[in-house]
Design a protein around this nucleic acid. Structure first.
Length: 103
DNA sequence: CTTATGACGGTCC
DNA sequence: GGGACCGCCATAA
């Protein structure tokens, strides 16, 4: 199978996050699931770790948990940005039913 | 090599 | 809807 180096996997994750349309979001699990097909691995945890370390240059606010929860420590900033883009935000969580997106 | 940790996810209660 | 538990996996110590 097509296994990639950790460095390449990071690139793939960032690339996918950048491809998320405005007003839509993707869960960590969805990202891991989509990339699993081409990277040979899948782990929502790993995606989260990658975002925490290398997500500074991509629209990280469009990545939330499967429950629509936003990243700890950035909840306020993420919430405001999402609202500005027209993402349906319900209190402290995103309305995944309407906002979830797949490539 | 073994243990702890974390921007997660699904199941169970 | 929400909290406790367990599984997953790369990284750090």
């Amino acid at each position: 199978m097509a296994s990639v180096t950790p460095q390449e996997y990071v690139e793939e994750v960032l690339r996918l996050v950048e491809s998320i349309p405005e007003g839509r979001v993707m869960s960590y699990g969805a990202i891991a699931d989509v990339l699993a097909d081409r990277s040979g691995r899948n782990s929502a945890r790993q995606v989260g770790t990658i975002m925490a370390r290398n997500g500074g240059g991509v629209p990280w606010h469009r990545v939330v948990t499967s429950a629509g929860r936003m990243p700890p420590g950035h909840e306020q900033e993420a919430r405001q940005r999402l609202l500005s883009e027209g993402v349906p935000v319900k209190g402290e969580h995103v309305d995944m039913t309407r906002a979830s997106w797949l490539p």
